[in-house]
Design a protein around this nucleic acid. Structure first.
Lengths: 348, 348
DNA sequence: CTGTTAGCGCATTCAA
DNA sequence: TTGAATGCGCTAACAG
């Protein structure tokens, strides 16, 4: 516990210099003679010295770290976002204070925020799916602190920094594609209704089908929970409500997988009897049976962008500036595979 | 940048007490009168004070944090391990210093280790797939520091703490199951050969087929890279080498998905013409076509166990004890679905 | 129950 | 190019 407390002073004594000189070597300052520099470095090596970050941060008055509050690693999008965040944080030589939450429990959030503030993080990235119910509560919390906050995949407001994917566009792309393929009654299986992503993808779908003159839209909507079983159940529910459905936009690939299985059970061939488009383009989607048409987003890029944003804000503030809130938006693309190609379908 | 530097002293003055008393309140010490405690707490609230963790850690001589070096979040097992780690770290009120690596680049590892030591982490969890090539290098590194290290999913040695899943048993379960189903020529698609998991699963398979009197074993082995495309390619390679193959143990579910697609292209029905067993039991496996028989592991538990181990070691050392290295092993189970049930197969 | 004194290990002034 | 003093914010060890 206590035998390895080599401090900067120990090194200094061993090297026959002052602590400050060692400090200079440590921080690659120019004002040290090459000779002493080398000698000190050698001693550092020998003694296995490593600077105490707490002391350093305390003294410097900086933490050089960014706090991230994220929602699980189980889902595709969120986990890729995190990969992007981690990578960029590393690249910019920040360090990461990571907090994962499963649910929005205010007391838990409070606790995490307290921790983050204690660590003096220089920015906070909020990568939890927007739960409208709590957004005011959260905004209020954040308004009390001076630490900059960047939201990921949240509805735009004019007082926040947001990095988001254009989920509505994704919904439009998916639905319009199905329509272009000649499908006439296009339903949707959404994610949990409280997610912002869910609302946006639904809005995209709604716009396209409304423009096409659909009526009784509500019976074409069913809610899932992002997981395969709910996709399976969802498709069955849809057909029970409206047997004329001939296509479905499923709001993520896992649920699309479930829907595919259900469609098999219902004796519907994909893409002949039923067109399907998913969302996310998980690596497995190309190997589904049949290969799944889906919407590809760039969640990794979004994570990286969020970190860059924070970094820029921090820098700006150091020069006294106060950056204006802004929205960064990334655009999804359509990846066409078999599950939606009515004419070329290979499965009978 | 500087207007919100509320310190413990500011609070103390505002409350008309000494800094020490505020510190006591902060740390829930019993030796404060209820009256002053409440008063101080109120002031803390009002001033929006939060203790500086760097100062606290510096003073206490403890970091209360655990360093984790992990391999990506993209793969199922590793990401779940991480979930387990994070959860348990939180539960034990430690904080997490996370480092993700994509490759084993010694200089990068060096850098990370340096960081971790600077943060004075109380333990290190090494959750990177064992690359034998570097294991000596790494052992040498770790031998120089006094911080306890726990390895995840690494071959046992008698000088290390290891938490691992019994991958060999998994391989045996999968292969024996196929054999029991009446398949006669069981091949294997492995992961990258340098992974410890790969070697173990392969060893399990090898033991079972050898016991069954297989000859020319090598032509039944093909190496993949954990991803679906390599599973697809792998199956084709196998059949090119030996057309009599009637079953394959695929070392993870993603590759199994690829193999399923290839089998369709080859005109082989699953499970009649070809039995398949995967590994991992990812949530989607039950929705593959056909549903995939697979090996379920408990990666989350493994992560949690590793943290508990670290915590126990730290505690033990505080009392002067020096815990003996040990291996914790978790057992996988077989999950039988359609892809391996020759007699009851539903797909023609 | 409360206050005083003295560091924790480092970096930032200044001098020299 | 180097060293000496000083303080970062907090807690531990004593007093009282």
């Amino acid at each position: 516990m206590s035998e390895e407390k080599v401090t900067i002073l120990d090194v200094a004594q061993a090297a026959g210099v002052s602590a400050q000189t060692v400090s200079r070597v440590l921080n690659d300052r120019p004002d040290v003679s090459m000779e002493t520099r080398l000698r000190v470095q050698k001693i550092i090596e020998q003694m296995g010295y490593s600077p105490n970050l707490f002391a350093r941060n305390l003294s410097r008055g900086r933490s050089n770290s960014i706090g991230v509050i994220a929602y699980g690693l189980s889902y595709f999008g969120p986990s890729r976002v995190l990969i992007g965040i981690e990578g960029k944080i590393n690249e910019l030589n920040f360090s990461l204070a990571l907090n994962l939450i499963d649910d929005f429990i205010p007391s838990q959030i409070d606790h995490i925020l307290y921790e983050l503030l204690s660590r003096r993080v220089e920015g906070i990235i909020w990568a939890v799916p927007a739960i409208e119910q709590y957004s005011d509560w959260l905004a209020e919390k954040f308004s009390k602190i001076q630490t900059p906050v960047v939201y990921i995949n949240k509805g735009p407001t004019d007082s926040d920094f947001v990095v988001a994917m254009d989920n509505k566009l994704g919904g439009k792309l998916a639905t319009a594609h199905l329509m272009a393929q000649g499908y006439r009654r296009i339903a949707i299986i959404t994610g949990p209704s409280r997610w912002w992503e869910t609302q946006e993808r639904l809005a995209g779908w709604r716009e396209v089908v409304t423009d096409a003159g659909y009526v009784n839209i509500d019976e074409l909507i069913v809610e899932g929970d992002w997981n395969a079983p709910s996709g399976s159940a969802g498709l069955k529910t849809l057909f029970a409500k409206d047997p004329d459905i001939d296509a479905v936009f499923v709001s993520n690939d896992q649920m699309a997988l479930g829907a595919m299985q259900a469609s098999r059970e219902l004796g519907k061939s994909i893409p002949q009897d039923l067109g399907i488009v998913g969302f996310d383009d998980i690596p497995e989607a190309a190997y589904f049976y049949p290969p799944l048409t889906t919407i590809r987003q760039g969640p990794k890029v979004i994570g990286a962008l969020a970190v860059e944003r924070i970094s820029a804000i921090v820098e700006a503030r150091q020069t006294g500036a106060n950056p204006e809130p802004e929205i960064l938006c990334s655009h999804p693309t359509l990846v066409v595979r078999v599950s939606s190609k009515r004419d070329e379908g290979i499965i009978g």
